[in-house]
Nucleic acid binder design. Structure first.
Lengths: 193, 193
DNA sequence: CGCTGATCTTGTCAATGGCAAGATCAGCCC
DNA sequence: GGGCTGATCTTGCCATTGACAAGATCAGCG
């Protein structure tokens, strides 16, 4: 391998996300990441400083990605919520780091900027809802965030093979079906056993 | 100090919970716990085997406590939800460990029993709600769990000094106010800024 | 060619988790 | 009383880890 890796920073973030999804965030080791990528054990320090720096970078990158995903979901509040859950479960490694402030350098400008951007997108989505007091927005955010978290933790017992998206749509419908009138009724088939 | 500590197991759990709330789960160290309690660095191993064993014990204990708290909250679905949030935020150290299965020994009988008990209490609370399909129950659980998680992560920006309980009541009312007819309207004062 | 800064490596140290072996103690039976 | 037994805790040790320091390699540029 060449002396210069070339894309070490991105490779390390990718490797970290993969490692978290495989082994769990608890077992994440900088030296293991370096081995996975094929560099020396001290190489990560150059790009991230220390462990906290790496996790801060992962979180910042994650919030940027989340913001983009939510923007692409459009204006429909329910679709934004479904996209939120889809992101949290398909990018579990990133998501788990994002909401663990004890792992971050809170004053990192890249992180705060990314969080602000994601927060703005989330709030603009909430503004599209009728009767848009902040309480409704927080309720919606809590609902999808809680569902995603519980799903990732394996705390929800559901028929094997059920897709998150179906569950998310049904659960979100309980909240939005009454306030936004999107689907206009109870859940169609009750996917939660 | 006496050779035998006497209540080492409970003391270690208490110390761990305190340490997590002070320093964060990431910085939890068995040796630091031993120092806090005043025993040698190998003493915890006797009671918990390893780090995973300690965290499993904390989680099991946490689910037992959660079940008790929810039982005491009565039959009102909204009150159970508020109690859930109150527990999660006042016992943050325990709560953070409880929903991190990557830190547990999932086959531990004490843990599975405690989880089952808490799950039963949660489901019995959901059964009290009219139109009690499982989707509504999952929505309610997701809502309070998400609110608690976001609150603990410091992700919710709210006026300084606002109490979680007030927010929880308002947010939960968005869901229950329409389905269970408990409060019967929008939040009274909109505590979320 | 030689300078400069960025990138990566090697070497080292303190702290940690885990294991092994032994010391201390409480309870119990004779 | 005396000794056995198991539970509890300690000391000693090792591999791994995160962090730091110093040096090696490389690309770009004058």
């Amino acid at each position: 391998m060449a002396y210069h890796h070339g894309r070490l920073r991105e490779s390390l973030i990718d490797a970290a996300v993969t490692a978290i999804e495989q082994e769990g965030l608890a077992r994440l080791s900088l030296r293991d990441l370096a081995r996975r990528v094929g560099v020396s054990h001290a190489a990560p320090a150059h790009h991230f400083g220390d462990r906290e720096g790496l996790l801060t970078a992962i979180a910042a990158d994650g919030f940027e990605r989340l913001a983009s995903v939510l923007e692409e979901a459009g204006d429909d509040f329910l679709e934004v919520g479904v996209a939120y859950v889809r992101f949290a479960t398909s990018e579990r490694g990133r998501f788990e780091v994002m909401f663990r402030p004890d792992l971050h350098r809170r004053d990192d400008p890249g992180l705060t900027a990314a969080m602000d951007r994601a927060g703005d997108v989330l709030r603009s989505g909430a503004a599209a809802e009728p009767g848009d007091d902040r309480t409704n927005g927080l309720a919606a955010w809590s609902l999808v965030h809680g569902l995603a978290t519980l799903w990732n933790a394996g705390a929800i017992s559901i028929d094997e093979g059920t897709e998150v998206e179906v569950v998310a749509r049904a659960v979100a419908g309980v909240l939005f079906g009454r306030t936004a009138g999107a689907t206009g009724g109870a859940s169609p088939a009750d996917p939660v056993r």
